[in-house]
């Protein structure tokens, strides 16, 4: 089934309620026109539906997503796909700050650039940015992969835990405890798979891997009793 919404005629609350009311196993296709920079569009989805959003999204678009595939035909404001659990969110334009923040799973693809703090505190999501990312990206990243086909801003991967970061272009600077790492066969395999899923033609061999040196306080066994 196909549903149509127009945010010039309907409210975000009406849209989100209609989506939440779909049965758990729904596979509908939903088209939404005139996003008009509205916040919280298509948040909290929990069905394997496809949602096409036309226009530029405001804050937290597709936040907390589970199972759904959401495509934004435009730019996305702060916190797109924040706390996503599963499914896929694809931004055809640029994304503002904190894209994919704290997300636990799923795939976030950004065709353009992502601003500062992309993947901040990410907890298992995979993020592929075809352009560049701003400063402090993957800050305190715990799990998952951040792939950047362009350049990365200052303090990449500061206070990183176990996120794998792959950057093809230039890195302005590395954050505390983030270091360049060897690209082994399993990493090339992981990166190839992510590039393929995101529809990128880039050669995995041209990327550099970065990760945690595991030298900060939290990694010292002597400090374990403090927790």
């Amino acid at each position: 089934m196909t549903m149509k919404f127009d945010l010039k005629q309907q409210t975000v609350r009406e849209l989100n309620q209609a989506l939440h009311d779909l049965p758990k196993d729904a596979t509908d296709e939903i088209n939404v026109d005139n996003l008009m920079g509205e916040h919280n569009v298509a948040v909290g989805l929990d069905q394997p539906i496809s949602v096409n959003l036309n226009g530029h999204a405001g804050y937290y678009c597709a936040g907390m997503n589970q199972k759904a595939e959401v495509v934004i035909n435009g730019n996305a404001g702060q916190g797109v796909a924040e706390n996503m659990m599963s499914g896929k969110v694809h931004v055809k334009g640029n994304a503002s700050q904190s894209a994919g923040a704290t997300a636990h799973g799923g795939l976030l693809v950004i065709d353009g650039d992502a601003a500062a703090r992309c993947g901040i505190s990410m907890k298992g999501v995979d993020i592929v940015v075809k352009g560049s990312v701003g400063h402090m990206s993957a800050f305190m990243g715990q799990s998952g992969c951040l792939v950047v086909c362009g350049d990365a801003g200052e303090a990449l991967g500061d206070s990183l835990y176990e996120v794998h970061i792959y950057v093809k272009g230039r890195v302005e600077s590395l954050g505390a405890d983030c270091v360049k790492k060897e690209m082994r066969a399993e990493h090339l395999e992981e990166l190839s798979q992510l590039l393929k899923e995101a529809g990128c033609e880039d050669d995995p061999a041209e990327f550099t891997r970065y990760g945690s040196a595991r030298q900060l306080y939290t990694f010292k066994v002597d400090n374990a009793s403090a927790y």
Partner: peptide, 19 residues
């Protein structure tokens, strides 16, 4: 501060938009 405030401007769909 937010794109939301620009949506009533003429030709905004074709505007060059950036942060």
């Amino acid at each position: 501060s937010e794109y939301h405030a620009l949506t009533t401007l003429p030709g905004i769909e074709q505007a060059n938009l950036w942060e």
